[in-house]
């Protein structure tokens, strides 16, 4: 469904993406991994149309996304940092997004899942970081979209919320959705991911199943396998 062709992006002198070509057809959970500055977030943002590539094309359902925005009806995205208008309450923000997207939502289920019932009428400025992150999740996950993109989802979540998140992702996966996750927590990847895309210095180093990567590196733990790659390719 997502096809990326020869994607280049430079920020000033810093060349972040050096010609990435990628096909994401498989359903299930794909983890996008890579050291800091390897271009994970830039890749995701390019797909969302936030970052404009210098060269290369991105297609969704065989339509070039350039100058389009309707395709984002099919995408749920959770950004790394949750920051909302401070003087609005979470309920108002949730309603705003519902108002903007006009598609079917299941926010009540998620409010219960993350235990947000008592936080809905507080202003965003008065919420703790973790609670804001939960609101961030709720906003991203409340519609039925074929694609879900989560940027560093485990940041600032308490163990219970993290557990609930994993369960929720499994349910969504069963529905046949494509879920893309970036993270630095390898145990999280081992637990949930089916496929791995490993970025290194703006190129794709590995793209395939988790088990294949372990086999390739001759390791039983993902953490060790990744460490091995990084040791042989000092950044």
């Amino acid at each position: 469904m997502i096809r990326i062709e020869n994607l280049h992006k430079k920020f000033g002198k810093n060349e972040v993406l050096k010609g990435i070509s990628l096909n994401i057809e498989h359903q299930g959970i794909t983890a996008i991994l890579g050291p800091n500055g390897s271009g994970k977030t830039t890749l995701i943002k390019s797909f969302l149309g936030m970052v404009l590539p210098d060269k290369g094309e991105i297609y969704y359902k065989n339509i070039n996304i350039k100058n389009h925005f309707e395709y984002r009806n099919d995408i749920a995205h959770m950004p790394q940092i949750a920051h909302f208008p401070e003087n609005l309450t979470s309920r108002e923000i949730i309603n705003m997004i519902i108002d903007l997207r006009k598609s079917k939502t299941n926010e009540n289920y998620l409010i219960k899942l993350f235990g947000l019932e008592n936080e809905l009428d507080k202003k965003m400025v008065n919420l703790s970081g973790g609670t804001r992150q939960k609101v961030n999740f709720l906003i991203a996950l409340m519609y039925e979209t074929p694609i879900i993109i989560l940027d560093e989802p485990s940041n600032g979540l308490d163990p219970l919320a993290l557990l609930r998140l994993k369960e929720h992702l499994q349910t969504e996966k069963q529905k046949g959705k494509q879920i893309l996750i970036t993270t630095h927590i390898m145990s999280f990847v081992e637990e949930v991911a089916d496929n791995i895309i490993f970025l290194l210095e703006g190129n794709i180093y590995f793209n395939g199943k988790l088990s294949e990567l372990l086999e390739l590196q001759n390791e039983s733990k993902l953490e060790r396998a990744i460490a091995k790659i990084l040791e042989t390719h000092p950044v």
Partner: peptide, 17 residues
């Protein structure tokens, strides 16, 4: 500047810039 992340949130929605 203080709305930067909120703008990013909006940009992930099906809305034109």
């Amino acid at each position: 500047y203080s709305s930067k992340e909120f703008i990013e949130l909006l940009m992930a929605q099906p809305l034109s810039r």
